[in-house]
Computed example of a mutant assay.
Amino acid sequence: MKKKHDREFKLQTVQLIQEQGKTVARMMKELGLKSRTVKKYKATTNSRHNLPVHNNVLAQKFNAHTPNQVWMADITYIPTQEGWLSEHHGLVYSKDCRLAHE
Rank of each mutant, 00 (worst) to 15 (best):
residue 1 M to R: 02
residue 2 K to I: 04
residue 2 K to L: 14
residue 3 K to P: 09
residue 5 H to M: 10
residue 7 R to I: 08
residue 7 R to P: 03
residue 7 R to V: 01
residue 7 R to K: 07
residue 10 K to Q: 04
residue 10 K to F: 05
residue 11 L to F: 05
residue 11 L to M: 11
residue 12 Q to C: 06
residue 12 Q to T: 00
residue 13 T to S: 14
residue 14 V to A: 11
residue 16 L to K: 02
residue 18 Q to P: 08
residue 19 E to W: 03
residue 21 G to L: 00
residue 22 K to G: 05
residue 23 T to Y: 01
residue 23 T to S: 13
residue 24 V to Q: 02
residue 25 A to N: 04
residue 25 A to T: 08
residue 27 M to E: 03
residue 28 M to H: 06
residue 29 K to E: 09
residue 29 K to I: 06
residue 30 E to R: 01
residue 30 E to D: 11
residue 31 L to T: 01
residue 33 L to P: 00
residue 34 K to P: 09
residue 34 K to S: 15
residue 37 T to C: 13
residue 37 T to Y: 07
residue 39 K to R: 15
residue 42 K to I: 06
residue 43 A to Q: 15
residue 43 A to H: 12
residue 44 T to Y: 04
residue 44 T to D: 02
residue 44 T to C: 06
residue 45 T to C: 15
residue 46 N to T: 06
residue 46 N to C: 10
residue 47 S to R: 11
residue 49 H to W: 01
residue 49 H to Q: 03
residue 50 N to M: 05
residue 51 L to K: 00
residue 51 L to I: 10
residue 53 V to S: 03
residue 53 V to D: 09
residue 53 V to W: 02
residue 57 V to S: 09
residue 57 V to T: 11
residue 57 V to Q: 15
residue 58 L to V: 15
residue 59 A to D: 13
residue 61 K to M: 12
residue 62 F to V: 13
residue 64 A to K: 01
residue 64 A to Q: 08
residue 65 H to T: 11
residue 66 T to A: 14
residue 67 P to D: 08
residue 68 N to F: 05
residue 69 Q to E: 15
residue 74 D to A: 02
residue 74 D to T: 12
residue 77 Y to Q: 06
residue 77 Y to T: 11
residue 78 I to C: 01
residue 79 P to M: 01
residue 80 T to H: 00
residue 83 G to L: 04
residue 86 S to D: 02
residue 86 S to I: 07
residue 86 S to T: 11
residue 87 E to R: 08
residue 87 E to W: 10
residue 87 E to S: 07
residue 87 E to P: 03
residue 88 H to F: 08
residue 88 H to I: 12
residue 88 H to Q: 13
residue 88 H to G: 04
residue 91 L to D: 13
residue 95 K to A: 15
residue 98 R to C: 05
residue 100 A to M: 01
residue 100 A to T: 13
